[in-house]
């Protein structure tokens, strides 16, 4: 606590608060609120029941109305706190007629009291609507969407790592005619965005029969020039003497690739793997175009379709948004230290 306080009151010069200190304080303070706030609000909201989501103004935490089982009634009755001339007490509602509610004391179920509904408020306590999370998996296709997303992300990342590293190896460690041309070609296409080649790409993917197939989502994304470029830059720093030493030891070129160069490229591969996972998990526009049948939707496309329905069921939508966010948040928590550790751990510059 004292450390936190010392941190909060730390100033630049140490003498007086100048305006930059105040500004820094305000900027960072509001940043925590604006950057984390929305995601936190999403998570809190995702645990609310539909009735609670419809409330305005909303409550911060999710609540559940309390019910009680009273002798002589089949259903559990909702509990209310009643305040009127007779004082404050907790009653269960039997039924409501107009502005008057018929209520009973759970301790004394025989006597029915009539209470004006203006005088009662529901008794609630913090409670989580786990159904928001379970139902979409059990009753809708979200389990399927999740499987599809995991498949696309995993397979695309594996193929990306394999093909990109093989190409990067050839382009960094062998001299051959046309090498310069291929490298220039790859760099030139680094910045070509998907949106520019959307139409012809669709015609090609449909030509090879991959519309509405997860492979149609995977293949166009795996030959990323970015990955080849990143890995090649890294492999260029591996001394050629290592390869020559291996050749003296009768290693085949394939062995040189996977026994020597790949392990030394691990930090760059890890970075590419992380980014590939995030990219493929988050991909939206291309899957949206290729996948038009529900059973092949990825999470992102499924979410969008769900959000586009006329009567949006926010309680399910919010919960599924949280689910979609989780893998990326997990990656994020480890990412920062991971990359620095990866670079520091190699000993190679």
């Amino acid at each position: 606590m004292s450390r936190a306080l010392a941190f909060l009151t730390r100033r630049k010069g140490g003498d007086a608060w100048d305006w930059t200190d105040v500004f820094t304080f305000l900027w960072l303070g509001s940043a925590v609120f604006i950057m984390f706030g929305p995601a936190l609000w999403l998570v809190l909201s995702s645990f609310k029941s539909p009735a609670q989501l419809a409330e305005f103004p909303p409550t911060l935490l999710p609540y559940e109305a309390q019910t009680v089982v009273v002798e002589g009634f089949d259903r559990p009755l909702p509990l209310f706190s009643v305040t009127d001339e007779a004082g404050t007490r907790t009653l269960a509602e039997v039924r409501r007629v107009g502005t008057v509610a018929q209520m009973v004391d759970p301790e004394n179920p025989g006597e029915v009291q009539r209470v004006n509904i203006a005088n009662r408020t529901p008794v609630r306590e913090v409670g989580f609507s786990w159904g928001n999370y379970l139902d979409p998996f059990l009753r809708f296709d979200f389990l399927n969407y999740t499987k599809n997303s995991i498949f696309v992300t995993g397979v695309a990342t594996l193929i990306t790592l394999l093909t990109n590293s093989m190409a990067a190896f050839a382009l960094s460690k062998y001299e051959f005619r046309g090498r310069g041309f291929v490298v220039v070609l790859i760099i030139a296409t680094l910045m070509i965005p998907l949106s520019v080649i959307l139409v012809p790409l669709y015609s090609i993917v449909s030509g090879v029969g991959l519309i509405n197939s997860l492979w149609g989502v995977i293949l166009p994304t795996v030959a990323t020039p970015t990955g080849v470029f990143l890995l090649r830059q890294y492999m260029l720093t591996i001394p050629d003497e290592l390869l020559e030493a291996a050749r003296m030891d009768h290693a085949s070129e394939w062995q040189i690739y996977w026994r020597i160069v790949l392990p030394l490229t691990a930090p760059a591969l890890a970075v590419l793997a992380i980014f590939s996972v995030v990219w493929r998990w988050n991909d939206f526009l291309w899957p949206l175009i290729v996948l038009s049948r529900q059973e092949v939707y990825t999470l992102q496309v499924g979410l969008n379709a769900y959000a586009g329905e006329l009567n949006v069921q926010w309680h399910y939508l919010l919960a599924m948004t949280v689910i979609t966010m989780i893998p990326v948040v997990l990656v994020f928590i480890f990412l920062q230290r991971f990359i620095t550790a990866g670079i520091a751990g190699t000993g190679l510059k």
């Binding site: 394999l162 093909t163 990109n164 093989m166 190409a167 190896f169 050839a170 382009l171 062998y174 051959f176 291929v182 070609l185 790859i186 296409t189 070509i192 520019v196 080649i197 139409v199 012809p200 790409l201 015609s203 090609i204 993917v205 090879v208 293949l219 166009p220 795996v222 030959a223 020039p225 080849v228 070129e253 394939w254 690739y257």
Partner: peptide, 25 residues
């Protein structure tokens, strides 16, 4: 032959799904 083998998978996909669309666009 080995260089060709290393390059082939990536370049095939790259040509089919990046270069070709670019050209026929």
């Amino acid at each position: 032959g080995m260089v060709a083998f290393f390059l082939l998978p990536n370049m095939a996909i790259f040509t089919l799904f990046v270069l070709l669309p670019l050209v026929i666009n």
